[in-house]
Every structure is written in C-alpha cells, then in structure tokens.
Nucleic acid binder design. Sequence first.
DNA 1: GTTATCGATGATTTCGATTACATCAGAGCG
DNA 2: CGCTCTGATGTAATCGAAATCATCGATAAC
Lengths: 335, 335
Amino acid sequence: MATIQDVARAAGVSTATVSRVFSAPELVIETTRQRVMAVVAQLGYEPNFAAKSLRTLRTEKILVTVPDISNPFFSQVIRGVEEAALAAGYSVLLGDTRHEEAREEQYAAMFRRKEADGLIFLGHRLPEALADMVASKGARTPIVNGCEFRPGLAVSSAHIDNEGAAAEVMEHLYGLGHARIGVVTGPLASPISSDRLSGVLSAAQRHGRASALRISIGDFSIESGVRQAGELLDELGRPTAIFCFSDEMAMGALEAIRRRGLSCPKDVSLVGFDDIRFARHLDPQLTTVSQPMEEIGHEVVRLLLDILSGRATTLQNVTLPHELVVRASTAPPAV
Amino acid sequence: MATIQDVARAAGVSTATVSRVFSAPELVIETTRQRVMAVVAQLGYEPNFAAKSLRTLRTEKILVTVPDISNPFFSQVIRGVEEAALAAGYSVLLGDTRHEEAREEQYAAMFRRKEADGLIFLGHRLPEALADMVASKGARTPIVNGCEFRPGLAVSSAHIDNEGAAAEVMEHLYGLGHARIGVVTGPLASPISSDRLSGVLSAAQRHGRASALRISIGDFSIESGVRQAGELLDELGRPTAIFCFSDEMAMGALEAIRRRGLSCPKDVSLVGFDDIRFARHLDPQLTTVSQPMEEIGHEVVRLLLDILSGRATTLQNVTLPHELVVRASTAPPAV
DNA sequence: GTTATCGATGATTTCGATTACATCAGAGCG
DNA sequence: CGCTCTGATGTAATCGAAATCATCGATAAC
C-alpha cells in the first residue's frame, strides 16, 4: 500500500504538503491540491492509521464494554453508541465481558495501552486496572458509565431513574388492586437491580404491603424468569401479579404462567422492564417500563466527547426519562 | 503515561531490553527481567499500541460489519466472533451498517487505512473500495463473509445450506398435509433470501404445488412480518401454513394470526428461521430452522486467521449444519 | 527603494516501540 | 594463552504521518 512518501514523490511535492491536503486543505493552493489528489486517487493512498495515531496520540476509537451483547437491551444501547460515535468521527471497539471480571480487566488493559481514546462501560464495575487513572485524573478521565449509576463510582454516567420507575410499576399494580405481588430481580450487586428493589420496597411500605411482597433473585435471562416466576407461582398464597426486572425474564414468567394452566392477565398480571422490541408483540402484549435505549447510547457518547474535548470538568450524572407503558398483561386481580 | 524510555531509564537498562521483556522474555536473564518488571509495575507502564502497531504493521484487530446489531441473530454471531477473536488475541471493531451502502464504504475505508488486520462482513455486498484489493490479492485477502455465501463473491465464507434448509421446511409442511403455503421472504438481493426461495420453489415443484404458493417479500423485521403475513391471511384461499425467513417475522406473523381471531397451529401453521433464543419461548413454541450462530462466528474467525497467518491459499466456503426444529407451531391443517 | 508581511511549500524532528546489528564478558577448547 | 563461541545487552535505524520551523518569492507599506 502506498505511503505518504510515494504520493509526495509522484506529485512532486513534500510529504508536508500531502499531509496538509488531508488535514488542512485551506493551506494548500488549489492547483497543488488537485495534483496531489489525482496521485492519491491513482495510487489508492489512505493515510496509515498507526502512524497518524502515534503522532497525534489519538485513536478516534471508543471502547465499549457490555456484559452481554446478545441481550437485546444492550444491543440497542450499543446501536445508539455506534450511531453517535460515527457521527462524531469515532468508531466503536466492542468488548463483550460476559459478566466476567477477567474479561473486564482484559479490556481495561487495552484501554491503558491507548487502543481507544475513551471507554464506555455498561456494566456496574469499574475495572481495577483503571482505578488509579480515575483517582488521578478525576472528572477528566475519559471513562463513562451507561445504565448503572452508583454515587461512589466517580465517573459520569447516563441512566434512568430506576428506583422511581420501579415504584411507578408498583403503584400501577397496587392501583389495580393487587396485594400479593411477586418480584423477580436481577443480581443485587448491580445498582440497576438494587435501585429498582428500593423503589419496590418503598412503594410497598407506602401501601402497607411490604409483608405481602415475595422477592426472588434472577439473572435477567429468560430461563431464570421461567424458574424464579415458577417458584413464586407455586408458593402458598400465589401472587396475583409478578414484576420482572427485565422483559426477557417476563417472557420466561409468561411461559411459567402458561405451563401451570394459568392465564395472564386473568390469573396473574405481569410487568417487565426495558421495553425491548419484542415486548409489544408478545401475547398478551407486555406492560413494561420503556427505557430510551438508543438515547442512553447517544448520551454516554456525548458525555465522553465532552471529556475528550476538555469541555467537561465536573462529573455529570444524566437521568433520562423513562415511561411506564401499560399494555394488556396487567389487569385487576380476579375476585 | 510512562513510555518505554522511562522504564529503561528507571531500570538502568536499554529500551531494547525492556521491549524484550515483553516480546521475548527468554532472551533476558531472570534478574534483569525482574528488575524491569518491578519498574513496569511501579510506573504502571503499558506499551503504546500505536507505536507497536506502526512498527509491526499489525493491529490485532478484526473489523466486523453487520447490517443490524440489534437483530438477535446477528448479535449471537457477533458473540461467537468476539469469543474466537479474543481467544486468538484479537479484538473486535464493530460496524453497524444499518443496511446502508454509505456506511459499508465508510468501514471499508477504515480497513484500507489498516485500522484492522482483517474484515468480516455479515452483509451480502463486498464494498466497492475493497474490490481492487480482492482482485489483486485473491484468496490471501484478509476478508471473510459470514452467512451470505454467493459463488461470485471471491472471498471465503461460512454459512449454512439455506436452500436445503428451506426445502426441508417445505417438506415438513407438505408432509403434514398442507397444500396452500404462504412464504414471507427477506429482500431478494441477498443470497440468504434468494437461496431459501430457491429451496422453497424446488420443493413446491417436486410436490406439484408451485401454483399454490404465495410469496411475499418482507425485510426481516417484526413489523414486516405482521404486514406481509397479514396480507397473505387476507387473501382468498387463505394459506394453511406460513413460512417466514426469520423468527422475528414469524413473531409478527403470529400477531397477525391472532389479530384475525385465528389460532396457531389450529388454523395456520407457522415456521420461522434462525432459532433465536426467543423462538422456543413463544406461544406456541415456534417451529424453526436452527442455525449454529456462535459457531458461524467461530468459523469466520478461523477462516480469517488462516488467511492472516498465510496458511490459506485457496478460497474456502464452509457449510455448517443446520437443523429443522419442530415445535408446537406446526400441525396438520384443519379438515 | 527598502523592509515588514504573508502565503505556499519544503526540511526536519518527533511520536514510542521493535529489531537488525554491534558489543562485550565469560566459558570452553586446543 | 589465545581464540572462538555464546548469551546478555546496548546502539541505532526504522515504521508513516504530523507538526514545527525555515525558506522563498511576491506584495504592500512607508
């Protein structure tokens, strides 16, 4: 592949001029520029990325780590990230951590090696290898979190009000007349689950129904929905409504309901979380909390670009709007 | 961030020795190695990636372009790619082309700039910007296709036998006694759809049922499933079975069936394609063709690594096994 | 008419690592 | 005892582009 030297030689100019044609064309006179461009087209020249990157100390890449790319919620967020990044001239390095710390650290090392200008992590844990960087550079560290806000995290983030959203779900169910409610959470290590659980508990207390709550811990997968919701349904004093912390688990719960010969929403109301594309196409259409997934993606990129450009000097925690979408899977309990 | 010079100075050795500690430790005597490593740990040194890449002309990155990352089929394939790549010491640069040629070309330019050692594309179109590279380097071009095999493509690929799989689906339906069958394809520009359609047509001809086929062209989305299947259901002489070229469209078709007060499989049998995670959790559980998505991901990476290592000298087109998974959504037609 | 200014371009250093080649001390050998 | 060989390490060229500084001719200002 042709180098800048080849182009310079063939066009009868210096490498500096060729470089300027690309990065500061207004400094080059039109005739020279055209002569250079003609040679560029003819040789199929593209500036070598590594050389450029070494000189400028920039990669124009954003590393995005995600606990599970095959989860439709995350893949929608990533779509938003990719879109906003590309629009700003950045490309996306993807890391699927599979919820494994070792992989998180592996990607953190990549970031330290400067393989990317910034890091967006959609998990809940800041890799150890980056702790010193955050400690020394503070709010100017080009690291942003998506979805999993935690006060002590010391990086900017974009997310919804998980606690408030979960409380709204409970208000909706209590409003319909449900008293015994089952909840299938995700792993409580992550704020995404613990915040929602707080919202659930405070709403229950407000209604004096805390003792009628049944909490079961899932892992956001369909299978865990089947299992955990199944256990709740098999208890004495079966809940009349189940709230799952993800649509996928709700999908599993729906299956558990059907398997027991029960019907949703006649026997059991069901609420999910996220509003992935499939939620509105289930039978019954699923009541859920809609998260602005692509917008979260846009927003984390915006936060990161602010840091990279030196605009941001303080931490920002952006709360984006969510919406309780009431569909056919919730109804008053049977009398 | 510390450079190799800083480490060399602090450890009282040359930069060559520091470099060797990382890339050829057996050449460095143990005591020296430990002294260097101590300094490395203390300074938190990581080799700068751009410098290394410039010198070695390798990036240890694979660029993967995909028509739609939020499609669960593709996100599973990507998962497989990411896994195999990481195991081989490569990381994944993700490009979501959104079915737009302009974005495909944009990512092709990235590849030309050597931002990645290899390219895996899951769409059906080889970007124009890469045609000359394929033409001049032939089978040694580090470009591989996934899923969309087409004889003239001139790059290696991994995929299933789409034509055979579609024919099997039709045999299954004819075997159950269906005569009037509706088919919802994807865009026919891609081999993935046109090959399946060939399979459908040849099976129909074998059974003398070609004239009873109804073909409708969708775009793989849920919404197009609702729409195209809906149109088929509204025709005179309603089909007793519908075969959709993706599970998502089948999900839409299921909705169209229900909206008309019909029942699956009693009134209409339904078959999807891909066997995404959701397929077995729908009601009724969906009959579909299972594709080994993660394995396709592994395989395209293997093909690419073969090229990068110089092992591969001829094109390889790998056909991976698929499987017709018969579940509850198909049954004999009502009499 | 001389000098400051400016626009276009060239020469050269620089980014941080890798690596071919050079060096040097000590072991082994005749 | 001197020579070669080998293992450990140092020296310096190199990768390809960007950016600083230098140059040079032309124009404008006084």
